[in-house]
Write a protein that binds this DNA or RNA. Sequence first.
DNA 1: TGTACATCAGTGAACGCGCGTTCACTGATGTAC
DNA 2: TGTACATCAGTGAACGCGCGTTCACTGATGTAC
Lengths: 192, 192
Amino acid sequence: MGHSQVEKARNRARILKAAARQIRDQGLESVSVGGLMEKVNLTHGGFYGHFDSRSDLLAEALRQALEEGEGHARGQGSSADRPNRFASFVRSYLSRTHRDSRAAGCAISALVSDVGRAGELTRAVMSKHIERFIDDMARAFGEDGDAKAIVAVAAMIGALGLSRVLADPKRSDAVLKAVRDYVIAMKRIEGI
Amino acid sequence: MGHSQVEKARNRARILKAAARQIRDQGLESVSVGGLMEKVNLTHGGFYGHFDSRSDLLAEALRQALEEGEGHARGQGSSADRPNRFASFVRSYLSRTHRDSRAAGCAISALVSDVGRAGELTRAVMSKHIERFIDDMARAFGEDGDAKAIVAVAAMIGALGLSRVLADPKRSDAVLKAVRDYVIAMKRIEGI
DNA sequence: TGTACATCAGTGAACGCGCGTTCACTGATGTAC
DNA sequence: TGTACATCAGTGAACGCGCGTTCACTGATGTAC
């Protein structure tokens, strides 16, 4: 059990990563200092050597979750070849895998409702990522793509959220498929 | 200060209504027994004469919130004349007013993320309302309307959620407007 | 219609519990010589 | 390179607080005669 500065940085990263996973999986309010520290095999007292307070941790964890989620989404898309990048990203975003792995997925869809009722600072953090999401989509849609991109992003985030609520697996799958097909078609077809 | 049976029923309704408002405004976990009873000018002890437990109350409050939210949405639509019912409903759902009055608005959009991570029973309650929402839209779209309705509902719920997060009011308005225009156009235009 | 009594809606003190936060301590780390 | 000491990451007991829940109580309600 080392106590070096290197180890401290590593521990901070582990705490943050665990928190980022948990807020996506169970919501912002689900995180308790004691529970979180236990999860990374440390005692609760040590927490305040890394963060000023629980709410400070939550702010940083949200940032981390949003970045991880974005990386996840981008990573899937960029590994595919150029022409299919858009379609493969949409397919991956609206996949059953993504729906079923909230903890590792897009933090926007996992936390829209929660952040929507949070303070302005918290909302600003997520806003940046929403804008980036829309910009990426707009670029794929080509000129005059902003309005279409907004619709596509809203539909994708809404679909993922709904698919996680729907109790009937078939209906849940159907929602993912309908929006997947539609958004991919939105790019191919020019009119509206 | 009466204690009649009639008064009891009225008090139960008041507690439930206050809870339904609060969960939409601040989330399921925000409700505390003491705080809620204080809001309706009763003491916390009396709570257990109306509900078995806090979690029992939450289940009923979610049901109530979903029904109220639906009524709100339908009420707006049906007051308009027939041919414009669809467009006026969409306009009302994606209005700044609806965005800014979470406590009285659609419970699906206010609580998707929260319910998405809840147990199967809770999810089933909201699922019923999602299906009804989709069915209503599908009817408006005419034959083969199901897939289109799914896309429209996902986009509407996503848009409302995003508009509540976006810190820049102009961008928030723009998201509402883009999806509003698009969904209304989806009905007029036949091809996809 | 009027009285006597059982019922029961709401009160407020009390409970155990988990939480966020503080702090004196410990022992490994890393620096000064 | 080796020793002596200051630093500081992590420990775990302790704190005050708010929470959900229980319960003995009270006084108005509503029923039986």
